[in-house]
Simulated assay, not measured.
Amino acid sequence: MTTAKLTQATKHWDIFCTVVDNYGDIGVTWRLAKQLAAEYHIPVNLWVDDLHSFSHILPSLNPALRQQTFNSVNIFQWNNPLDISYVAGSVVIEAFACELPEQVKSVIDKLHNQAQSVAPHWLNLEYLSAEDWVDGCHGLPSTQPSGIKKWFYFPGFNRKTGGLIREKNLFNERDQWQANPNNKMALFKQLGLRGIHVDDTVVSVFSYESPALTALMAQWQTLAKPIHALIPKGRSLTSVAPLLPVDVNDLMPGQQFKMGNLTLHILPMTDQIGFDRLLWSCDFNIVRGEDSFLRAQWAAKPFIWHIYPQEDDYHLVKLQAFMRIYCDNLAAEISTAWCEVNLAFNQGDQQAVVNYWQQLHSVILPLQQHALNWPNNALNDADLASRLVQFVKNS
């Protein structure tokens, strides 16, 4: 690798991302990079350590290429050490506490300590959380050994935080899509899904493994109204394996299995636009991690959040913090049913998830209305990219 000339060369931004759990971290950073390029005309270099996983949500990406460009974002293979020349820009973001390459930190430090040079703004983009302590930690600096400050940027649900990722036209596009049922039916056909009628209940499932999912699907088989579960190949299907007549490893997109009044459809992987439209088209979404969690909220449909498990069940603390703000103005019977079904799913409690799903079904209409109102309340006037650009200007 060659080192950069020690002056700030361009106004581009660098975003570094290590891929965790295949799609979550890269999903967030890819959306942010695209939005910065499209809406703020900022040149963005996105450095990713696992292009193969990235290609699942960006099918045109070639994992064998070290450098390529999509949606006006330059995508680089992040090898350690870097084997691509690094030129410092105006901002460098380490996503979710990933460790910057030593070459990059060296360039930043030298720019900071050299006269007549401008060091990049250095930010750590943190995970999304609704916990109270986030308000006080957002925007705090950490002075590095060289003297340069690294700023901690926390996404969040109120004006004291860094906001939430949402593209400028997203809600208008969603509303136009959902206004015409032909859109969802055309999407189902495009995905190779057969036998779904316009009034059938459709649930998308993108979760981690959970015995609660097995219990739910067993219950869905007995419902009076047809229900369709749409599941991509991956971790969710491990929980469904006991219900299937074939080995999970042999499943192919487009296959479907009818079990009572439940039809299970195997989904192909899709890009982010396709995933958003899938969430918009379903009646209920079971999602995981951070990126799909937020997109389920923007879909304005009821959902279960299967949060990433952490030691000592700390993920349940995060779940409960979000549930408090999501249910702040909900009637008790709606709030209880929704919170308990989320807790039961995350704890793998089979009996509880079935019981509370039945209660949830009895309050589904007001819950749907709440899901429709929530996105505008959660946005708090400004999205993450807008606040991030302003934060850089102010700091």
Rank of each mutant, 00 (worst) to 15 (best):
T29A: 12
N376W: 10
Q310H: 08
L187R: 01
L32R: 03
S281N: 09
F154Y: 15
V392S: 03
L51H: 04
P59G: 08
R288A: 03
H121L: 13
L279V: 06
R387G: 07
L216F: 02
Y23G: 04
M217C: 14
D349C: 09
Q297A: 01
L330C: 08
W133N: 01
W30T: 10
K168C: 08
S292I: 02
F96T: 01
D383C: 15
L384W: 05
I93K: 05
E99K: 14
S362Y: 08
L128F: 13
F76W: 12
K34C: 10
M252F: 12
F96G: 03
R66V: 11
M1K: 08
K5M: 13
A378T: 05
I325P: 01
Y153E: 01
Q219N: 13
F188C: 06
C98L: 05
A97H: 03
I93Q: 00
T214I: 04
T7W: 14
D200C: 02
P302V: 04
T270E: 12
H12F: 10
A119M: 07
S85T: 11
T214G: 08
Y308T: 01
K301I: 11
L365R: 10
N285K: 04
E167V: 02
W357Q: 08
L319R: 00
L125W: 03
L100Y: 02
V44S: 03
Q219T: 07
P145K: 04
Q390C: 12
L128W: 01
G27R: 04
A37F: 03
Y208Q: 05
S129H: 01
I148L: 15
F257C: 09
Q103D: 14
A4P: 09
F284V: 09
T214L: 15
L319W: 00
V198T: 13
G136S: 04
Y208H: 05
